[in-house]
Design a protein around this nucleic acid. Structure first.
Ligand code: MN
Ligand code: MN
Ligand code: MN
Ligand code: MN
Lengths: 221, 221
DNA sequence: GAGATTATTTTGACTCGTCAAAATATAGAG
DNA sequence: CTCTATATTTTGACGAGTCAAAATAATCTC
């Protein structure tokens, strides 16, 4: 069994290559994402490489092997099903489930996971809109559209919130920008590095592009 | 936060002093219970002592401090609530929930635990009859009566199964000796090291005393 | 109570996951 | 191209948790 640390590294590498799984992840980015110093990332990545979970070339970067990808998706499935359980069944707030899920994702057997999946009625996405990988380890690859890339006049539906920090999720929640909400892009301000969107029958919301980069959308039908 | 290993050591010390919490646990017994070599138990116990979780005197033995006891009870509460959840809500077999619970007990926040407790309706015992400690960290101390100490003619109700090994639980299950069942002690055989009990409208069951020591009972009203 | 047996502790070693700081490679600027 | 800034890797260290085997203490046995 892969250790907790191993599972987390693989998951982070996966998340850092959302747009393109063949992209190489730098040690700097991985270290920042894992909140460790770069040297730690290098030494862990060497072990992942030894265990054939990643491709790694010194000074170049790291990406998942198919074995590593499979493991990452299993962890993600657990994480997202657990988050769904905590919100749907135990009534926790979507902004506070991440911490528990971060630990529980490493502690659940396949059998239990499948029971939870049935209990929940095989949900397709978690409370943040993140797709739940199937038990066979696959996940439909959907095109990633970021709110930040929209232009004034676009009408889009928010599908996923990529940042699971409590403060960010609360910000989103208070302004009515949960997954499923349709918004109109009122204006974009390149110089001011900001954009303004308006959710239907709500106040317009202005946010920086860094924030708008964390919201995924699809064209509103 | 105590590590997973720390929590498990405290829990095992607690379980080894069921009858009398002031009894000292030997390194040999602790090591056997934790499935480590004795030297490992010694070195871990020294750390627990450093952290004021146990009283320890070389060559004498170990017992929990009140801080250690509190931690042990928190772990036990988690373990038993989780087992109850897995059986009641997700339909797993009582013989197979132990492994998952062994890991999940270290991964659940207080808040989540209380939600699960409410969801389950504040159960008092787990599927094996083990009492669930209250959230304030206390548990009523009940007298421990072992089936093995009964005499022919006694009528007793089985209350707890102390051994959570799958094979043992299956044995118990198949012979109708689950918690709640009332049995009559048919005979005890000192020389043969065995005893025979008969659950109401069931075949009599003969078992060794080692097995009968793992069943707790109370006098049948 | 001396000697043998058993239990406990100590020592030395190892893996995992981590950091600090030094060494080195790569990429960027002029 | 060369020098400099930045990123990466290496080295040495550490705590946690473990084992094997040696040293030592405690407990029987006669
Ligand atoms: Mn995690
Ligand atoms: Mn999520
Ligand atoms: Mn455990
Ligand atoms: Mn139990």
């Amino acid at each position: 069994m892969p250790s907790q640390a191993t599972e987390d590294y693989l998951k982070h590498i996966f998340q850092l290559t959302l747009e393109n799984p063949h992209q190489l992840v730098s040690m700097g980015d991985l270290a920042e994402s894992m909140e460790v110093v770069p040297g730690t990332a290098t030494s862990m990545v060497k072990k992942l490489h030894r265990d054939k979970l990643v491709h790694y070339e010194a000074y170049s970067g790291v990406k998942l092997t198919s074995k590593g990808r499979k493991t990452a998706l299993r962890v993600l499935r657990r994480h997202r099903l657990v988050e769904t359980l905590l919100v749907e069944t135990f009534g926790l707030d979507w902004a506070e489930v991440h911490e528990d899920a971060e630990r529980l994702e490493h502690a659940i057997s396949d059998k239990l996971m499948e029971r939870i999946d049935s209990f929940l009625g095989h949900p397709l996405t978690d409370p943040h809109g993140d797709p739940i990988p199937a038990s066979d380890g696959e996940m439909p690859t959907t095109k990633i559209h970021r709110l930040v890339d929209g232009v004034a006049g676009d009408k889009v539906t928010i599908t996923r919130i990529l940042d699971q920090e409590q403060a960010f999720l609360r910000f989103i929640d208070e302004r009515g920008l949960r997954p499923g909400t349709t918004v109109r892009i009122e204006q974009t301000d390149d110089v001011g590095d900001a954009m303004t969107v308006r959710p239907s029958r709500r106040q317009p919301v202005t946010m920086g592009r860094a924030a708008a980069r964390k919201l995924l959308v699809e064209p509103a039908g």
